[in-house]
C-alpha cells in the first residue's frame, strides 16, 4: 500500500509511480485526462490548471507526492455538472471559445472563483482569470461569459 492515494474527479485513485512525477504528465499519460493542456510547463500560462481541493493550481508545478490524500478535479469530471453547463452555455452565447487550448483551464479558473464568490464584479473576474493566458480573444468575451454564467446560473454556486 505504498501508492499515492487521492481522489480524481470523484474516484478513489492510487498512483504507483514516483512521488517526483509531474501531476500534468501523470494526468495526461496515466489517466488520459487530455483536457489538461501543456502550454509552457513552467507555471506561467494556466493551460494545465486543475482544481486541488477547489483551489486553482497549475498541474505542471505539482509533484505527485503533493497530491496524496487530496481531491483533484479536471474538466473530465467537471463537465458532468450543472455548473459546467451554465458556463458552457454562457461561453457559447458569446463565441468565447476560439482555438480552445486555454479553455479547460479558464473554465476551472471560473469555477474556482464562482465557488467562493457567486456574484463577482468584472474586476474580480479579471483578477481570477489573470493566471490563464488566452492569446485569441482579448479576454472580453471570456470575462463577459463568466459574468453572464454567474447571473444566469444564479443559485448553482
Amino acid at each position: 500500500m505504498n501508492g499515492i492515494r487521492f481522489r480524481l474527479n470523484g474516484k478513489d485513485t492510487c498512483y504507483e509511480g514516483s512521488a517526483a512525477d509531474r501531476l500534468l504528465d501523470v494526468l495526461r499519460d496515466e489517466y488520459d485526462m487530455k483536457s489538461v493542456k501543456c502550454g509552457c510547463k513552467e507555471g506561467e500560462c494556466g493551460a494545465c490548471a486543475v482544481l486541488i481541493d477547489g483551489v486553482l493550481i497549475n498541474s505542471c508545478c505539482v509533484a505527485m507526492g503533493a497530491v496524496d490524500s487530496h481531491e483533484i478535479l479536471t474538466v473530465e469530471g467537471y463537465r458532468e455538472t450543472a455548473r459546467f453547463e451554465a458556463l458552457s452555455k454562457a461561453f457559447a452565447d458569446l463565441s468565447a471559445v476560439q482555438c480552445g487550448f486555454c479553455i479547460p483551464g479558464m473554465i476551472l479558473a471560473a469555477e474556482a472563483l464562482l465557488s467562493k464568490n457567486a456574484h463577482p464584479t468584472e474586476q474580480e473576474v479579471r483578477t481570477a482569470l489573470s493566471g490563464n493566458i488566452c492569446r485569441c480573444t482579448g479576454y472580453n468575451a471570456i470575462v463577459n461569459a463568466v459574468m453572464n454564467a454567474a447571473k444566469e446560473g444564479d443559485g448553482l454556486w
Binding site: 488520459d32 485526462m33 487530455k34 483536457s35 489538461v36 493542456k37 501543456c38 479536471t74 474538466v75 473530465e76 463537465r79 458556463l87 458552457s88 461561453f91 457559447a92 452565447d93 463565441s95 471559445v97 480552445g100 487550448f101 479553455i103 479547460p104 473554465i107
Partner: peptide, 22 residues
C-alpha cells in the same frame, strides 16, 4: 451569431490536438 460548431468538443476537453493522440 450561432453556436460555434467546435464549441462543445473544445470546452469539454474532448478535441484532439496533436499531443493528445495516445
Amino acid at each position: 451569431s450561432v453556436k460555434k460548431k467546435d464549441h462543445d468538443p473544445k470546452i469539454e476537453g474532448r478535441s484532439v490536438y496533436v499531443d493528445d493522440y495516445n
